[in-house]
Design a protein around this nucleic acid. Structure first.
Length: 453
RNA sequence: GGCCGGGUGGCGGAAUGGCUACGCAGAGGACUGCAAAUCCUUGAAUACCGGUUCGAUUCCGGUCCCGGCCUCCA
């Protein structure tokens, strides 16, 4: 039984899909105008786990995670770089896909792009105009918030609160200050498509509404994203879709908390954004993923000096246990404690605690038949979390991060073994120190010496 | 100003009306030529003040502090 916290009700609810034969989930992906940062990675990892859990329960799960490749931030970035817009979006889409792959994220069913779905967007806007939920003013098409009395039901924000808190000048052609743009005109230097309202481009929120309808249907089970999307993005999506389709947009709204840096939200002005690409040279994706799972998804996750060290050490220990049992054949396992923890509103810290418990059991088990059983459980558990899927030695030797070549290392180890055999411990220690200075640590086992970077 | 979250050991981080998980780091021991790894053992926390209760970290009220949203943002 899957339980999820629904932003809409502010309660943990039992998940009951609209159609158990076909479960649908949509997660707001990135706007591709710069390198993905650690905050982009968090929802991707969380919903990756939820996707796996759902796939395990239901016969068909359709998961769409979009790429927003039409946006004024993109236009600005391209202008600044003096770069062609499609070049820029292509470059950063690829970067995003690579970073996600590096984090061990499996492919969603669909990765729709806005530029491929302009006609669906125009169709939906036309429908909203036709139904008097939208109006044309000053070459823009705007959503008429007053036509949707439930506006604010997701974010729990009231009209008057929004107005009093408004920090931005209201465009004079808006009927209501909360009305938002569905379509806006483009000049010749800006990307645009022909439409009933002239050459232009979609506003920020309509693309998700249109792509959800096209790829998943009018009403979906789960709609997810970062907490910052609750308002205005999801509020506006909900208004558009509900009005255009005359049916609810999503049954469960799931939002993840922020990644903070030293307790502060990452932002450009503070210059504290952690770019995944910068992390990649020092740490492996799996460590980053593990770090992202260390806090419950609705809590803030603080990124600081020790976050990655902690994750690396933890994974090293877990992989060491797997290495100790490398010859044990895992037995296929059924449902595990980790899954139970994940079914409980994706409680990843508790799941990790269960994983450790299994790992300890594996380490302690004496009989091979028991080891085989526990190893099967451990591997199944770590599959859902998306970790520990590599060969232990591959992980521990960090073959992907190079200093000395493997050949050089093995040579030195051979020399050291010889020195040890001759009780020349001074020489043996000298070689070990030399290796250590190069970032190689070794451990002597019964009949061989293993090394790790 | 309006609306939300949150304050748990050295650090990270769950859970709970009744011995406070788990991890990382630390300490001691076994093992080792010495290490490392592993195993065993171990110290260490619920912001503050009231209230309800046999019992509160958990529920209620207040205080202080931190963060977020109301503008683009995962």
């Amino acid at each position: 039984m899957l339980k999820l916290f629904n932003t809409f009700s502010k309660k943990i609810e039992i998940f009951k899909p609209i159609n158990p034969e076909r479960v649908t989930m949509y997660v707001c992906g990135p706007t591709v105008y710069n390198h993905p940062h650690i905050g982009n990675a968090r929802p991707a990892v969380i919903f990756d786990i939820l996707f796996k859990i759902l796939k395990d329960i239901y016969p068909e799960v359709i998961y769409a995670r979009n790429i927003t490749d039409v946006d004024d931030k993109i236009n600005d970035a391209a202008k600044k770089n003096k770069e062609n817009i499609s070049n820029l979006t292509q470059r950063y889409s690829t970067a995003y896909e690579e970073d996600m792959k590096n984090l061990g994220i499996i492919q969603p069913t669909f990765i729709p792009k806005v530029t491929d779905n302009i006609s669906s967007i125009i169709d939906m806007i036309s429908k909203l105009v036709e139904l008097n939920h939208a109006y044309v003013a000053n070459n823009h098409v705007l959503f008429d918030v007053e036509s949707f009395p439930k506006y604010g039901e997701i974010s729990k924000l009231k009209q008057k609160d929004l107005i009093s808190g408004a920090r931005i000048e209201v465009a004079p052609y808006k009927k209501n200050s909360s009305d938002f743009v569905l379509w806006k005109p483009s000049d010749n230097d800006t990307p645009g498509w022909s439409s009933p309202w002239g050459r232009g481009r979609p506003g920020w929120h309509i693309e998700c509404s249109a792509m959800i309808k096209k790829f998943l249907g009018n009403s979906i089970d789960i709609h997810g994203g970062g907490q910052d999307l609750i308002f205005p993005h999801h509020e506006n999506e909900n208004a558009q879709s509900t009005c255009a389709n005359n049916s609810i947009l999503a049954k469960y709204w799931i939002h993840n908390g922020f990644v903070t840096f030293n307790k502060k939200k990452m932002s450009k002005s503070l210059d504290n954004i952690i770019i995944l690409n910068d992390l990649k040279n020092k740490y492996r994706g799996e460590s980053i993923r593990f770090a992202l799972l260390s806090a419950h998804y609705r809590q803030p996750l603080d990124w600081n000096d020790t976050t990655m060290m902690n994750a690396e050490n933890s994974l090293n220990n877990l992989y060491s246990i797997l290495l100790n049992n490398v010859d044990i054949k895992p037995k296929i396992s059924r449902q595990t404690n980790v899954e139970k923890n994940l079914l409980n509103d994706i409680n990843t810290p508790e799941a990790i605690a269960s994983l450790y418990s299994t790992a300890r059991d594996l380490q302690k088990a004496k009989k091979n038949s028991l080891k085989s059983e526990i190893k099967g459980i451990l591997l199944r558990e770590s599959y859902f979390l998306g970790i520990l899927q590599k060969e232990p030695n591959e992980w521990l030797q960090k073959s992907d991060l190079l200093s000395l070549t493997d050949k050089e290392i093995n040579n030195l180890i051979r020399q050291r073994s010889l020195a040890r055999k001759n009780k020349n411990f001074q020489e043996a220690d000298r070689i070990r120190k030399n290796l250590l200075d190069n970032g190689i640590s070794i451990k002597d086992e019964k009949d061989e010496t293993r090394w790790t970077r």
